[in-house]
Design a protein around this nucleic acid. Structure first.
Lengths: 189, 189
DNA sequence: GTCTATACGCGGATAGAC
DNA sequence: GTCTATCCGCGTATAGAC
């Protein structure tokens, strides 16, 4: 069968999207290529027509996911510093995000596995993170505050997801939200 | 089932200690019982004389590790709020901790896997975390600040460990440290 | 309690037909 | 490109000897 030009690139992207959700849900190490490809409607053999290895998939997944995260910042409609911040805090630190890691930020769910990965994977992570911090620093006024905001949100999501009850999850989310709202507000300057 | 005699209790604790280090290093799912028991000098068959399953080990590991973390807070020699805080920030947010997850806090390295575990495991996590937050809240003045400090430190360690270079790791650690130092200082009250 | 041996399934990756 | 079939190793857990 003959395929239209660009078909392979599109198929690769499709496999990547399906894999991203499943790996964010179940973890990188724990999710096999078989189940990823089954979810995409092909067999595991087809995987290697698009990726050289599972590690390459991991790197591509990180780059794509962090790119998407930055795009979401750009969609924030508010111009005032305070409104912009509140919008971001509500978008990240909510129970829907806690319950759906497959559709959320890659950092709370896969950060520890990136830390255990090869240097080649970590370099992709670094490059994408530095782009994000640079953008955020323009909004907040300093790179220090940009890193602090990211660490706070990622840590809160990580610890909230491990809580067995909604009450416990909310306690963590709301604490971090109020804390960032107070400490990053322009009123402090 | 009867409770084991003292000798068995000690052996169980020894297995737990060895397992903790290896699992914090390599991840819970990725580290097999074979390699854990090999490091402890026994065979995998012996494991099941002390634990009903790998999940039970995971729960016991979480309880023990979070207990140890609380004990470390108690060892802080400073009485003034500012000195106490600076001591904790330096103890947690440093490059040695980044480089040695096997000897460090369980939350950055295993938090995501706790989030994916059974409710029984999460309940152990919740119970131990609430004890810790209560202690920290006494120091900082509110539970909100206690949660915020923990989330910030855990998030910073998670994201710093994924950085491929020491410079990148330090940028994150120092940002979080200065941020918490400024925002949690008693001067704000 | 700990050992050896084993049951049984899933992991990543490859070869060759179509 | 995708399929089926397969290699080979590791995963948890159990059975039975000592």
């Amino acid at each position: 069968m003959r395929y239209p030009p660009g078909h392979k690139q599109e198929k690769r992207k499709e496999l990547l999207n399906v894999s991203s959700a499943l790996i964010k849900e179940g973890g990188y190490a724990a999710t096999g290529i078989d189940s990823l490809m089954q979810a995409a409607g092909v067999t595991s053999g087809a995987f290697y027509s698009h990726f050289a290895s599972k590690k390459e998939l991991f790197g591509a997944l990180i780059a794509q996911e962090l790119f998407i995260s930055r795009e979401q910042w750009a969609e924030n409609p508010h111009s005032s510093a305070e409104d912009w911040l509140n919008y971001e805090l509500d978008r990240y630190l909510n129970l829907r995000h806690v319950r759906h890691p497959d559709a959320g930020c890659i950092l709370p769910t896969l950060g520890a596995e990136i830390a255990r990965a090869d240097t080649s994977v970590k370099e992709i992570y670094e490059e994408e993170m530095l782009k994000g911090v640079a953008i955020l620093a323009q909004r907040l006024g300093s790179e220090e505050q940009a890193w602090a905001m990211i660490c706070q949100m990622v840590g809160a999501m990580l610890l909230a997801r491990a809580m067995p009850t909604e009450a416990g999850q909310s306690a963590i989310l709301e604490s971090s939200k109020r804390f960032l709202r107070d400490t990053l507000s322009t009123a402090r300057k």
